[in-house]
Design a protein around this nucleic acid. Sequence first.
DNA 1: TTAACAAATGACAACGTTGTCAAAGACGCG
DNA 2: CGCGTCTTTGACAACGTTGTCATTTGTTAA
Lengths: 339, 339
Amino acid sequence: MVTLRQVAERAGVSIKTVSRIVNGDPAVNAKTRDSVQVHLQSLNYVPNQAARLMRGGQSSVYGLMTDAVATTPYSVDIVRGAQAALKEQGQTLLIANSNGDPAQETEFWRMFRAQRVSGVIYASVFHRAHDMGHPAYNDSIVLANCYASAADRPSLIPDDEGGGYSQAEYLLKRGHRRIGLLTLIPQIDATRLRGLGIRRAFKDAGVAFDENLDQQGMVGLVHGEKMVAFDAAVKMLQQKNRPTAIICGNDAVALQVYSAAAHLDLHVPQDLSIMGFDDLKVISENLRPSLTTVALPYFEIGRRAVELMRESKNQDEGWSPKILVPCPLVERESCRTLN
Amino acid sequence: MVTLRQVAERAGVSIKTVSRIVNGDPAVNAKTRDSVQVHLQSLNYVPNQAARLMRGGQSSVYGLMTDAVATTPYSVDIVRGAQAALKEQGQTLLIANSNGDPAQETEFWRMFRAQRVSGVIYASVFHRAHDMGHPAYNDSIVLANCYASAADRPSLIPDDEGGGYSQAEYLLKRGHRRIGLLTLIPQIDATRLRGLGIRRAFKDAGVAFDENLDQQGMVGLVHGEKMVAFDAAVKMLQQKNRPTAIICGNDAVALQVYSAAAHLDLHVPQDLSIMGFDDLKVISENLRPSLTTVALPYFEIGRRAVELMRESKNQDEGWSPKILVPCPLVERESCRTLN
DNA sequence: TTAACAAATGACAACGTTGTCAAAGACGCG
DNA sequence: CGCGTCTTTGACAACGTTGTCATTTGTTAA
């Protein structure tokens, strides 16, 4: 590896002068600068970040810890968003995956500390409260897609209540009155909040919501979910007074509802309108008819998490907002307007 | 941050003794060790990796550069596999995303060098030749899901030819004779190799392959693909002598074939068997009937990439194998046996 | 011409760690 | 007791960088 010393020797100047040039210090003669630049190029000098960091600087590396996000198709966009924001300043992400194992997490907090990363984003696969205890890491931590139970960390979460409202509002405006729900498991916040939003939309529209049509598309406990949307949908659609539309807890649930419709020879959207959640493009864009759904703003959450992290470094303690990021409805072809 | 010096002062020993204890050097008295351990714990000492690295050691950080892998639902498993292999030794991944932009890549090679990462995995979203030129990085580089045109780097690629063979063989064994193909774009290796494998299976079974049934499920150029599988499938299934099974270029194509079948009131698998490729679980496991498909061994590729990287560090130059990783068939419910 | 000042450059220490080597103490043997 | 050997410990340098401060060189005003 080429060092400042080697460049300095070749150029016949002191180490410090080369250092100045590398760092764009204006206090250096133009002639000197040019002549040294040549050697920097020819030796292909790249500053040693480890040395810089040890000298006391800020690391250009940030951490991303997650229970599964980085490695799950669903929410990679958080990573993408964070990377996009970091790239502008030549910074990068060290990614760690705990799979939700607390022992692993402790390990990774140590690792982040050992690497002296400048800040950490803790991202969850799904929107929930997360108590991270007192991680062995004292720099800024931002929560993405989850929030601190103790409200002592800034966090970014999707506006699930608003998303639920959008789903129901969209269908109600198009004349649907009997609308079925196939929800995620009830233990998670997303389910509760969207349910609230949906009911608020019904209320605003002056339509009564039939609670019998509120069914689970998934069952089981957190991290041990089982998909049952197909069976639930078939059952719901075999009722004499079947719903004209079904709101799904996510796009995978919607996929099963498409399958259920096909099974019963019902056509989408003529016989049944389907609304998803997540906007997982590999599903929503490839289904035919393509899926109208509400997007989880993961990219935006990742991007803003980085901003928040940078800000909270300069901030005094005790200020930890919980920021709602809106979930835009993406209109495609799976919902029809009733006559 | 707690340093060796601080621990040493508290414990009343020299820095070096503490260093020895931290690194498990046996040449230290048991009593001393115990008394110092207490202070290490209470001060929560974590060694500064930057300092260690500067002292000349090996970095515990590896790099993963990709055109899009890390941030695309399709191949995150490469990341998961790599992380699993690294975790055992307390190592981690720095992840960079070039989006295929060469300028970005140059930038990232510099960054990896600046961070002194111990090795880099270059992963591609799809199986292809990749000419990386002469990156400004001299440590070991392993290619995942792509291979060096110049064959001067070790690489790991899926056995697409074998995967194609499995697809066709499975259906032929179950009595299918007219089998349609909806392929990926012809420009990529995967398409060509799987085509070869499929035809080899037909030949081995002594069945003639109808070339008219070889259609594209996607069109367009690399990085600008457009999905046309739905239309192609509808057309193919409206023929009087329609195929009894369709082999798809990936699971998203298969998803569109399900949609096409539903559109034509054909039932899967009674009226039509469908075979996917990739085993993208969010699709393959959630479809009803669930999708029989051939898995891309991305996790395994990621895992072995790390091993290969470690090995190639100790290896002499000029040794750069191209390793084929098998693609196992995952049997589910979408293919029936003909009477 | 000289003093005062600004610009350009360099010497040196420090960051936290570990390898090298030497010193100090403990122990056994003749 | 004196010697060699082994165990345990510590002093010191070095890794590559940058902040601090001093030195050298150049420039301006009196």
